[in-house]
């Protein structure tokens, strides 16, 4: 259930994101989802790719500061109130979240969540029988 997300440190200057995508593209690595967190000086690219270990290696070889972060991916129906239901559960069970980002396709909406405690979060969501994607599902998207 744990998904390896790639986190890359980026300075706020033109062309950096472009370079990361070029490097991953040339290495034959596909990106399934990503988001960028930014401040005035720097940003962090968070990306889910088809082959996280290989991506880590090629980016390191190109002198990026990069690491792998454990996240989970919640899959819920693409209907009103579905996200609220999941968040209510996490709130009641007191599972703190560092950040999240989401994407929806047709019938389903997928939410990548970085909880402070990944294992505890998985436990809670499973208890309430919410649908978590396996890494193999996600990397193939």
């Amino acid at each position: 259930m744990i998904i390896k997300q790639l986190s890359v440190f980026l300075e706020n200057k033109s062309g950096r994101l472009c370079e990361v995508t070029n490097i991953l593209g040339e290495a034959g690595i596909n990106m399934s989802a990503f988001s960028i967190a930014d401040t005035s000086d720097f940003g962090i690219l968070r990306v889910i790719v088809s082959d996280p270990d290989k991506a880590l290696q090629v980016l390191r070889n190109n002198h990026f500061s990069v690491n792998l972060t454990e996240v989970i991916c919640l899959s819920c129906p693409n209907v009103p109130g579905a996200m609220a239901k999941a968040l209510n559960i996490l709130n009641e069970e007191q599972i703190p979240i560092e950040y999240m980002y989401a994407f929806s396709m047709g019938e389903v909406a997928n939410v990548v969540i970085k909880p402070t405690n990944v294992r505890k979060c998985i436990e809670v969501l499973q208890k309430y029988e919410l649908d978590l994607l396996k890494s193999s599902d996600l990397y193939k998207m």
């Binding site: 962090i44 500061s65 970085k114």
Partner: peptide, 15 residues
């Protein structure tokens, strides 16, 4: 320079 041993995935850690 942010070396890997410094690097965190979270903005607040970097700040």
């Amino acid at each position: 320079e942010v070396q890997e041993q410094f690097f965190s995935d979270e903005i607040k850690e970097l700040q």
